[in-house]
């Protein structure tokens, strides 16, 4: 009897601690997300109020200020109009082509073009965002792989060769100062003229953006062993190759994964930009472009969000790989 009463509260506090722990982790996220949604909904009212008032007027409703035409309202403050016409606020969240779509509109569009299509067995139809995301993803991953291999190779060269150290780094930095929007169409046109089309040109743009963070991170990582550790290997008469495999490369791993995360995000941007100037018919970039041609703001926002979700997943995958690798290496406690 006494035993039971002793253990019961202990177990409940353990459970309580677990709940509290989860709550402490989730609470800040919930707060931030709620604030963002609140600001977003609030912003929808002034952004879309003019179209809502025009529609209301056509439907025969008297809107404030009385007597002002749609033309007059165009030059008025949107925030002022929103305050004068609180009855029309609700109409700003349900328009077909709003200036700023409301969160639930974007969410509905996202569902309609992903989950709903999967349920209807048309996951890879041309109207499905999954299809477009897949097109962008394949270019991103291929470009990222090329950029990472190239970036690591450059870093190895820079660390081991004085000539490369002096000559390559300035060019690598210069390459990143050129706006990608300027150079992307040229890469595509040049590659097109020598018969390379489709995935490769987009992947090249991705690689162009993603090699740089990998190079910079790996140069730093491969140089991270201090003088004492290099001296130690010297006392064993270790070769440059042995120094690389046994000391430099393992030391660089934390830097490698961090720079890959940046490279992956850059790679996705590269693939999307690569889909824009060519009039590409598939991919998130093409979806963004088509949306802006036809004023489909909801479609644009849905494509933007799927790009963001894709980036988060890809960076998350690298983060998981990082934890696994460092744990296996014994570098995480």
């Amino acid at each position: 009897m006494t035993d039971a009463t002793m253990t019961a509260p202990a177990r409940s506090t353990g459970f309580g601690r677990a709940v509290r722990g989860t709550w402490n982790a989730v609470f800040p996220v919930v707060v931030v997300v709620s604030v963002i949604f609140a600001i977003w909904y609030a912003a929808c009212v002034p952004m879309n109020i003019k179209a809502a008032l025009d529609q209301a007027e056509r439907d025969g409703v008297i809107v404030n200020p009385a007597g002002a035409t749609a033309r007059d309202r165009r030059d008025m403050s949107a925030i002022g109009l929103a305050f004068k016409n609180p009855e029309q606020a609700g109409d700003t969240f349900v328009q077909e082509r709003p200036r700023l779509p409301a969160p639930h509109q974007v969410a509905r569009e996202l569902w309609k073009t992903t989950g709903d299509m999967v349920l209807r067995g048309k996951a890879f139809s041309k109207r499905s965002l999954l299809y477009h995301a897949w097109v962008t993803l394949s270019a991103t991953v291929l470009g990222f792989a090329m950029g990472t291999v190239g970036g690591v190779a450059l870093a190895v060269g820079i660390v081991h060769s004085r000539v490369m150290n002096m000559s390559v780094m300035p060019w690598a930095i210069a390459s990143q100062t050129i706006p990608i929007l300027a150079i992307a169409p040229m890469i595509i046109v040049v590659l097109n003229s020598i018969g390379i089309t489709g995935l490769i040109p987009k992947a090249m743009i991705s690689a162009y953006l993603s090699f740089f963070p990998v190079t910079v991170g790996m140069v730093k990582g491969l140089r991270s062993p201090d003088g004492m550790q290099l001296d130690l290997l010297k006392t064993y008469s270790a070769s440059q190759g042995e120094t690389f495999w046994k000391l430099r490369l393992p030391s660089s791993m934390p830097y490698f994964f961090t720079s890959m995360k940046i490279g992956m995000a850059a790679s996705l941007v590269g693939a999307i930009v690569g889909e824009m100037p060519t009039g590409a018919v598939a991919g998130l970039g093409a979806r963004l472009l088509a949306g802006s041609y036809y004023g489909q703001t909801i479609q644009i926002w849905a494509a933007l969000f799927s790009a963001a979700i894709l980036a988060a997943v890809l960076v998350g995958v690298i983060g998981a790989l990082q934890r696994m690798t460092l744990k296996k290496m014994g570098m995480v406690r």
């Binding site: 004492m228 550790q229 001296d231 130690l232 000391l247 393992p250 791993m253 290496m329 014994g330 570098m331």
Partner: peptide, 9 residues
């Protein structure tokens, strides 16, 4: 050396 300098991995 002054520090043990063991490889953490």
């Amino acid at each position: 050396f002054q520090a043990a300098g063991l490889y953490p991995w």
